[in-house]
Design a binder for these strands. Structure first.
Length: 600
DNA sequence: GCCGTTTTCGGCCCGACTGTTTTCAGTCG
């Protein structure tokens, strides 16, 4: 008798189960360090850049930091039998809706447990009704204000569709807030102000916006902040710390510190929590306790306990602990603290390293600007080369280029390149296409047409719901086509709106490494595809990458920083990215057939 | 439950703010 086929669980689904275990244990009041272990495991699995099933099959679960014997066994149970007895026991003890109540701001495990046990409330709906009916004040330690807070929290929860906001929405909002705050105060009130938290680390989604400032007049800053027109709600109002809610439900926290606290405070509020813990452990070993203001001696042989050391910059703080300064994008406790100690952090790619774009659109397909307008904008931005890569025919939703349109584009590009050359401008247009990878893995244009182009990007836009084997084989077929230079937005995800396809990235990236196909980091903040984590994996497997804006309008050329910071989250250096290279060198890194087309 | 450049046992970050308290527990980041 063979075991019934189990549905395959992806990393996110496995991570959710372990996060749920952590939440259930919180409510049941289990040992907090065990809870932290489950929470860490959940986070690690969610951010893992390899398929958990593959790691499991290879017997390498224990190699994942934060996964020990007990959790490895539970993952094994889950993947081989489809369930975890330990987890089942927990869910039997706590009604399903009780964990969900913890999503309401200010409702934590203790509160949720009391609401359930003492008032028999087992869900957010019941909580809302009880608060509205004034039943919660019956509990010792709760009053009318608690009910108000709960109702407000539920409202806030409903207003934001997702827990986290894509960085592409959050960053402009946050930058606007800072600008408005500065203009609401007399010049000089704020000496320093910076985004901290996940925005400074350039995570792809943002929970809360964290702003850190230095000012001699913290109260004035607090008042101006809470009076901002974007504040639909005041969630906290202290002398040095305040929180507001924005119309989209996003929470913004501001904190004002003294100038001498800046280094420790910026490090503290940039996080991540896991990175902070690792740095703090390092400090402790040296006899220092680290908080958001300073290092305080605690068991240090040379300083009496309680001696403070202040740092005006992060660099000074890290240096004091014997660490190189760690770029915020790396602060996820993925080996960066050890590398900082060994002075082996990579020299990360920077925005200025990018000299060319290899994926862009014009009115020949679904772009908003003409070829000439895009070229002028690109040239004005200082690019050295620019690949025009309109959608090929084959993508149903938009008009695409065929051989005739490509000939037209070639003529226009030749004319413009001639003008640049005559004017002594160091800028070169290339002709390519974003070839549609059709459902069977063939491309939207025939090979003899692709062979005439300078740089071919191949992308999947439709059929993203194909099963894992089908979409992987389809993509592999495109990658193995000798005319395909770049694999565009490999997973097809749209952050917060569409999950990545089920594609087996490990196999695809291996094939890219073998064939010399360049892998794209699509800089559009809705995509960021590959992600930083998978970009790192791609480099580990021997791939080269390209960071592309995929601009459909002149404005979208400005999205490049999202791509560069994503690459930095993947520990990438300029050497890993081909469009940091001068034109000839870049072309030489493509599957080599292109050289003959471009040399003239 | 995890982990090790003092440890295979004994640790595991810490302060601000809030609400309901007369000294603190809960939540959050």
């Amino acid at each position: 008798m063979t075991a019934p086929e189990l549905p395959r669980l992806n990393n996110r689904q496995v991570a959710e189960i372990f996060a749920d275990i952590g939440d259930l244990m919180l409510i049941l009041g289990e040992n907090r360090f065990k809870i932290i272990a489950y929470q860490n495991a959940a986070r690690t699995i969610a951010e893992l850049n390899q398929d958990i099933n593959a790691v499991h099959a290879a017997g390498a679960l224990r190699d994942i930091p934060g996964i020990g014997q007990a959790i490895a066994e539970k993952i094994d149970e889950l993947l081989t039998t489809g369930s975890i007895p330990f987890y089942n026991k927990l869910t039997e003890q706590v009604p399903a809706g009780v964990v969900a109540m913890m999503r309401v701001p200010d409702v934590g495990p203790k509160t949720a447990k009391r609401l359930w046990e003492e008032l028999d409330i087992t869900g957010v709906e019941g909580l809302k009704a009880a608060a509205a009916a004034g039943r919660i004040r019956e509990l010792k330690g709760f009053g009318a204000k608690s009910e108000e807070k709960i109702l407000k929290g539920i409202e806030l929860l409903a207003r934001r569709q997702n827990d986290r906001t894509p960085i592409g929405s959050a960053r402009p909002l946050a930058e606007g807030l800072i600008a408005d705050l500065l203009s609401a105060l007399p010049p000089g009130t704020i000496q320093k102000i910076e985004l901290a938290g996940s925005l400074r680390r350039w995570r792809e989604t943002i929970g809360d916006v964290d702003i850190l400032a230095v000012s001699e007049q913290p109260v004035a800053v607090m008042e101006a902040f809470r009076a901002l027109p974007q504040a639909v709600d005041i969630l906290g109002a202290g002398d040095r710390k305040s929180s507001i809610a924005l119309p989209n439900g996003m929470q913004v926290d501001i904190r004002v510190v003294e100038a001498r606290h800046w280094g420790a405070a910026l490090a503290y509020f940039t996080g991540s929590q896991a990175h902070n813990v690792a740095v703090r452990e390092r400090a402790q070993k040296q006899g220092w306790s680290l908080n958001e203001y300073s290092l305080t001696s605690d068991g240090h042989p040379d300083f009496p306990d309680g001696t403070d050391r202040f740092f005006e910059t992060e660099e000074a703080l890290y240096a004091f602990l014997g660490l190189d300064w760690v770029a915020p994008e790396l602060r996820e406790n993925r080996g960066e603290v050890q590398a900082a100690r060994q002075h082996s952090l990579p020299r990360l790619i920077e925005l200025a390293d990018i000299v060319g774009e290899l994926h862009s659109h014009t009115t020949f397909s679904d772009g908003k600007a003409t070829l000439e307008e895009m070229a002028a904008a690109a040239q004005a931005k200082g690019y050295e080369y620019w690949n025009v890569s309109d959608h090929s025919i084959g993508l149903g939703v938009t008009q695409g280029v065929d051989a005739g349109a490509l000939a037209e584009q070639r003529a226009e590009i030749d004319r413009l390149n001639g003008e640049y050359a005559a004017a002594g401008i160091d800028f070169r247009l290339l002709l390519g296409t974003e070839a549609e990878v059709l459902a069977d893995g063939t491309l939207g244009l025939p090979d003899d047409v692709l062979a005439t182009l300078d740089v071919v990007v191949a992308s999947i836009h439709t059929g993203l719901r194909q099963d894992r084997e089908t979409i992987t084989e389809r993509c592999l077929k495109a990658v193995r086509n000798p005319h395909v230079d770049i694999l565009g937005h490999p997973t097809g995800r749209l952050i917060g709106r569409r999950e990545p396809s089920e594609i087996d990235l490990e196999r695809v990236l291996q094939a890219c490494a073998e064939t010399g196909t360049i892998v794209e980091i699509n800089a559009n903040p809705a995509r960021l595809d590959l992600s930083g984590a998978y970009a790192r994996r791609a480099v580990e497997l021997g791939c080269k990458l390209a960071i592309n804006c995929d601009a459909h309008s002149v404005d979208q050329i400005d999205l490049l920083p999202y791509g560069v910071h994503t690459a930095r989250r993947g520990w990438l250096t300029a050497a890993d990215v081909i469009n940091t290279r001068p034109l000839d060198e870049m072309l030489g890194m493509l599957k080599d057939r292109n050289i003959r087309n471009i040399a003239r």
